[in-house]
Design a binder for these strands. Structure first.
Lengths: 197, 197
DNA sequence: CCTACCGATCGGTAGG
DNA sequence: CCTACCGATCGGTAGG
């Protein structure tokens, strides 16, 4: 069983290195020979740890999806206003991404290279997650917290765009930490840039 | 010279079809044989119109970059407030994208496959463009139009994320036209989602 | 984890 | 715009 544990952790190493490679070069342009070289082994040896290149992509994409889902589950359970839910949802999303910026970037940019039926399943998970945020927005409009003039689809896609690009530019070594980043981003989207009168 | 004109227009056809293909499959996963098939010719025949696969990517990326730049040039010339400049800059950006959503998607997602020195040049153009928006934000903070509590880097990256993801979800056949979309997006970022007291 | 290797596919060229 | 083809590289397997 110590073998099984060692195998698991080696598999983890392979997946993590693959995430970096996929992020940097894109899934299609990243070769298994590139990956093997990063790990200091031969390409053929990779296949004692993983079944295929796509299996790696699948585990990266679906593991992240599960994390996002879990985070939003917790927020929805709380008895708070829609704008508080939205803020906490945003902060939770940012924190999940911050835990693994590399996997987050792969999740966002490379999922389209999943084959069927995995791609379909992934897209269903994503649309479901987006719709849960949309429901929060709609709740906020109903309760009078948010403007009713806003286009809900536009608002939710803008929110998602902002969230999903974060792994592309956020520097984990920077002064602002993920929780502050989430707070500020939520504040910016809810309250806007303009100084209130 | 009618030959030259015919060649130019055929070259345009190749580039436009390539843009669709690069958008759908990603640059690395799109093969010249795929492209040839879409055009109803043999792969080898492509090379009488273009020099290389990357030449297509280069023209797509740099042509879009030039359009964005031009649009912002016009806005900066106007004698208007920072918040008006920001709004017009956003609307202009959206309109440039809307003129060619396919090329916009390639510009945004596939530029990283440019080889050096083109990649470097492209990234310099992009950072320059972003910094021009950042200057508008800073001007707005100076004049008291925008909050000074906002993190400028975060604000400008959020702005860009929102803008750049638009080609991924915007349906040109939808009820909302690009100019309205630009207006609403600008309003949402400047004024926020919250109903003002 | 390695050596040896496979069939498929890649971008691109030669020559017409 | 075509036929014919090139060398390189791809993901992956067999067998140890």
């Amino acid at each position: 069983m110590s073998d099984a544990i060692a195998n698991l952790s080696r598999k983890e190493q392979v997946i993590r290195k693959a995430a970096e490679l996929f992020k940097d070069k894109g899934y299609a342009a990243a070769s298994m020979r590139d990956l093997a070289q990063l790990l200091g082994i031969e390409a053929a040896s990779l296949y004692s740890h993983i079944k295929s290149k796509e299996e790696i992509l699948r585990s990266l994409c679906f593991d992240m999806a599960a994390e996002f889902r879990k985070s939003l589950d917790d927020v929805e359970k709380e008895k708070i206003s829609a704008s508080e839910k939205l803020k906490k949802g945003i902060i939770g999303h940012i924190q999940v991404m911050a835990k693994d910026l590399t996997a987050s970037a792969v999740f966002m940019n490379e999922h389209r290279h999943l084959s069927q039926p995995f791609l379909r399943e992934f897209l269903l998970l994503r649309i479901n997650y987006i719709n849960r945020f949309k429901s929060i927005l709609e709740e906020g409009v109903r309760t009078g917290e948010f403007k009713d003039s806003i286009d809900k689809k536009l608002a939710v896609m803008t929110l998602f765009s902002s969230l999903n690009w974060m792994p592309m530019w956020y520097d984990p070594g920077s002064a602002i930490d993920p929780s502050q980043l989430g707070q500020q981003l939520a504040d910016m989207l809810v309250n806007g840039l303009k100084k209130n009168a």
